[in-house]
Simulated scan of single mutants.
Amino acid sequence: MPSDADQMEITELAATIMSRRTERGRPIVVGISGYGGAGKSTLARELLGLIPDSVRMRGDDFLDPSRSHRRSTDWDGVERSRLVREVLGPFRDRLPSRFRRFDWSARALGEPEPIPTGEVLIVDLIGLFHPEVLGALDLTVWCDVDLATAQRRGMRRDSELGRDHSNLWNEVWVPNERDFDELFAPASLAEIRIPML
């Protein structure tokens, strides 16, 4: 639960997003990124409640379940080009499009479905601030939590859901985050940094 100070920052962020939508004169895409466990989904859900005609695209829908569980220097398991091609570009241009979510139980792409429609699309995803995606984002927001804290939160969340991903956190996900930081400095690419305390 965000503190009063955090809530004020989130309210101000919502106002900034609505202002950006007015400036652009078309639907916009807001990218929220940060480390695993930093609070990306929490922030996205908060914003949905504050921004009229906003919709969300869950980042997990564009994570390949097998590739996201192995080491890579650029979060290889994040299907960024497909996200841009199937969802972000068409949303901004008000074009009909269909996309396929990863079905985590089947470990394969699900059936095609229409992209959501609205005036603001909020997408929250690890490894989002990458050259393949940046041009398709109208506003970039970083959940500003240090990696050690994000890891603790993520591991606690997994434990509460009955999942033991300790080895993945320590051997894959945290090293992936460090490599991605070194290659792309994603926090420095954010227009807005929101402390998720």
Rank of each mutant, 00 (worst) to 15 (best):
A5W: 09
D6Y: 08
Q7W: 07
Q7V: 10
E9P: 06
I10T: 00
T11W: 09
L13R: 01
A14S: 08
A15L: 13
T16Q: 14
T16P: 05
I17L: 08
M18G: 03
R20P: 07
R20I: 11
R20T: 14
T22R: 15
E23F: 10
R24Q: 15
R24K: 15
R24C: 15
R26S: 11
I28V: 15
V30M: 03
V30T: 03
G31I: 07
S33H: 08
Y35E: 00
G36Q: 11
A38F: 04
A38T: 00
A38R: 01
T42W: 08
T42R: 09
I51A: 01
P52G: 04
P52N: 09
R56G: 02
D60W: 13
D60H: 12
L63Q: 08
R70D: 08
R70E: 14
D76V: 11
G77E: 01
V78Y: 08
R80L: 08
R80Y: 10
R82H: 10
V87G: 04
L88I: 04
L88Y: 04
D93I: 06
L95E: 12
L95A: 14
F99E: 01
R100E: 08
S105T: 15
S105C: 10
A106H: 09
A108G: 12
A108H: 06
A108K: 09
L109S: 01
L109Q: 03
P112C: 06
V120M: 10
V120K: 06
I122S: 01
V123W: 07
D124I: 04
D124P: 06
I126Q: 09
V133N: 02
L139E: 03
V141C: 03
C143D: 01
D144F: 06
V145Y: 02
T149F: 02
M155E: 00
R156I: 00
R156K: 09
D158P: 01
S159L: 13
E160C: 01
H165G: 01
N167M: 09
L168C: 02
L168I: 05
W169S: 03
N176A: 11
F180D: 02
E182H: 13
F184H: 15
A185G: 14
A187F: 08
A187G: 12
A187P: 07
A190I: 05
A190E: 03
E191H: 14
R193Q: 07
R193D: 02
P195C: 04
M196D: 00
M196S: 02
M196I: 13
